[in-house]
């Protein structure tokens, strides 16, 4: 399994993290003091972004990012806060559409289909590209209803038995089933933080997405819960393509990718990893 890690240099305005960049990051939007490291392009990618620029009103949040996400790959994005990691993640299933002032330029393809083309249905797109958020956000419904929400909306189950099966399978894949099998009718908000986040993962995989986007899924969790989610991510890549934003170097270092960490090609990256920007 090939995993790559992309640092702040690859995504967004790395200038913001550069000591020379000064205070106003926008003064440097024309200075190309960043470059992509790691392996930005792969053959036959699941998703590919080309020359993506994102603006919030007239502030540019992402500059000219090109990146491929390979099939069944875990791509981890690291970088300082505010550098545009989450924004980039959200452009991948058009969650940024909710924000009225947000504008996206460039191409983002999901298996050769431009997801920003005029007739792209965001409902279908988001069913194929699911998302797990930074803070666990289960619905204030029962555990069962939380997982059944997506399948119900998309009409994936034709009988109660089928729905039961989907719910159980999703909870098992999120390695939560054994903990909650006797409490499926209890509210999802009553679970612990780590369980809630796994419930959110179960909810996301219940609609059988092809890609799962995770926006700092462990930032609100304790180390033990974090370890469980990391394990889970490692298992999930068998079936899904995963893009994850993280602040944790260990998470970015899943699988056999060491390149960025052991021999950063760019000075900025090295500075970030070795903690000079921490």
């Amino acid at each position: 399994m090939n995993s790559i890690a992309v640092t702040a240099d690859g995504i967004g305005e790395a200038g913001a993290s550069s000591p020379e960049a000064g205070l106003d990051i926008h003064d440097h939007s024309d200075v190309k003091d960043y470059e992509t490291v790691g392996e930005p392009f792969v053959e036959d990618p699941k998703m590919s972004a080309r020359n993506v620029n994102v603006y919030y009103a007239d502030k540019q949040a992402i500059m000219d990012v090109s990146l491929d996400i390979g099939k069944n790959e875990v791509i981890a994005m690291i970088g300082p806060s505010g550098c545009g990691k989450s924004t980039f993640l959200r452009t991948l299933n058009r969650m940024n559409d909710i924000i009225p002032i947000c504008r996206v330029e460039g191409n983002i393809n999901l298996e050769d289909q431009d997801i920003y083309r005029g007739d792209q249905d965001t409902v279908l797109l988001r069913a194929r590209v699911g998302m797990v958020f930074q803070k666990p956000n289960p619905f204030p419904k029962s555990i069962y209803e939380n997982v059944a929400y997506g399948p119900r909306i998309h009409g994936l189950a034709h009988s109660k038995a089928e729905l039961d099966e989907i719910v159980e399978k999703s909870l098992r894949r999120a390695s939560l089933f054994d903990e909650v099998k006797d409490a499926l009718d209890k509210p999802g908000t009553g679970l612990s933080g780590g369980q809630q986040q796994r419930l959110c993962i179960a909810r996301a995989i219940a609609v059988s997405p092809e890609v799962i986007l995770m926006d700092e899924p462990c930032s609100a969790l304790d180390p033990i819960a974090t370890a469980r989610i990391e394990e889970l991510i490692d298992e999930l890549k068998e079936r899904y393509t995963i893009a994850i934003v993280t602040h944790s170097m260990q998470q970015a270092e899943v699988g056999d990718t060491k390149e960025v960490f052991t021999m950063p090609k760019h000075e900025l990256t090295e500075n970030y990893i070795t903690g000079r920007f921490g």
Binding site: M95, F133, N137, V207
Partner: peptide, 27 residues
């Protein structure tokens, strides 16, 4: 109702009206 509820529902591919009926109003 927290925005995270809206995001969760929309991120699942629910439409705006489904989100309103099934998540926002119950909450």
């Amino acid at each position: 109702v927290p925005d995270s509820m809206r995001e969760a529902s929309l991120g699942m591919g629910a439409t705006m009206s489904e989100t309103i009926r099934k998540v926002l109003l119950p909450a």
